[in-house]
Write a protein that binds this DNA or RNA. Structure first.
Lengths: 211, 211
DNA sequence: GTCTATATGCGGATAGAC
DNA sequence: GTCTATCCGCATATAGAC
């Protein structure tokens, strides 16, 4: 499996460059140059650029699924915050995927079905999560509210970092320390539904993140 | 101004192709072929592909700004719904812009500042709009709530159509009749803040759009 | 496994005739 | 204004030597 460290180094360099500059802007030559190897050598390990992207996407699946499935025990608001935080971190580590969604799906059509499945799984997990909070009395929400909330949560975890570039200057490189802030932002979607002492936790977060 | 109809036809064909297949996937050759003219002729009217995109972006600005500035008189929930509907329609007509945000800003850096300004203007208008509804007693929201709501509204009008591709199969072509549904979706962000008889309007919309 | 060298095609952009 | 013909550069992908 680990026979050749080169294969792994190609994946790591590709992920970094894709994240920083976008998968459209990075050629196979560029990845090879970054590693100080020849394009021919890179081609020996990955026949096509698409093969690299697909391999990275599978890693993203493996990285994200535990985050969205480990939500069975969520009964408090800070559990949800942690879940969102982990989710944002995973998305941030593979942010090249959702960075240019349409381009990505057009260029790598083999990944469209997998992307749909992943998003659907995410929505279902978010619904279960919100329903759990409602059952625990943390929030007060109808079944329809829960559905909408779940969709808004997944929409936010998926597209928030992309949208951020339209409201603040582009982060130069590996900056993804704002997962916590993003999690707070997403959490405010539930804000108006929160009842009881869970409001205290919201106020604590608000004091921490607002200005 | 209208000396040559060709220039206008180039812009129209470009907009349509960019919207349908993405600005990255459409070459100048392709636009020329679509119109049945030569690449040389196209180059006579637009020296570069970037010039076409910039011209279309300016049209988008001219198309969107009236939608976001004509919100001074919003004092009822259905005024907001209409405003959102018009906003979504404008975004849909120029959906190639927000379709792949990072790619767009990377490829056409001259438009990054304008995009920022447009988004900022949109947020300010949304804040005024939510503040107006709060003042009119339609919603009950603190100043911080209003800020968050405005950001969520703009986030949604900007990125919702892009995200939709991850949860439902890709719309083949000029389908953008879902502006009304998108407006309803965005409106639910205000749902929990709504008080008084405005709730009736929300229930009316819910019956209309849910299932 | 890794290299050098190269084939092939496409997209952006231009020159110059009509 | 519109055409044909062409240059240039880049990206994908391959061939074959070491």
């Amino acid at each position: 499996m680990a026979g050749s460290g080169t294969r792994e180094r190609i994946l790591e360099a590709s992920l970094r460059l894709f994240n920083d500059e976008g998968v459209a802007a990075i050629s196979a030559h560029r990845v090879a140059a970054e590693l100080g190897i020849s394009p021919g050598n890179l081609h020996y390990h990955f026949k096509t650029k698409q093969a690299i992207v697909e391999r990275l996407f599978m890693r993203f699946e493996g990285r994200l699924v535990p985050c969205i499935d480990a939500t069975a025990s969520v009964t408090a608001l800070d559990d949800l915050w942690l879940s969102l935080h982990l989710n944002f971190e995973a998305v941030s580590e593979y942010r090249f995927i959702y960075r240019d969604i349409s381009y990505f799906l057009n260029e790598f059509p083999a990944l469209e079905a997998r992307s749909h499945a992943l998003t659907a799984r995410n929505v279902i997990a978010a619904e279960a999560l919100c329903a759990g909070l409602a059952a625990a009395g943390v929030i007060e929400a109808s079944a329809e509210d829960v559905q909408m909330l779940a969709l808004q949560l997944v929409f936010t975890t998926t597209c928030w970092f992309t949208f951020k570039r339209l409201i603040s200057p582009h982060q130069p490189a590996g900056r993804h320390a704002d997962a916590a802030l993003a999690a707070y932002y997403a959490l405010t979607l539930l804000g108006p539904y929160v009842v009881g002492e869970a409001r205290d936790y919201l106020n604590y977060l608000r004091a921490k993140y607002l200005r």
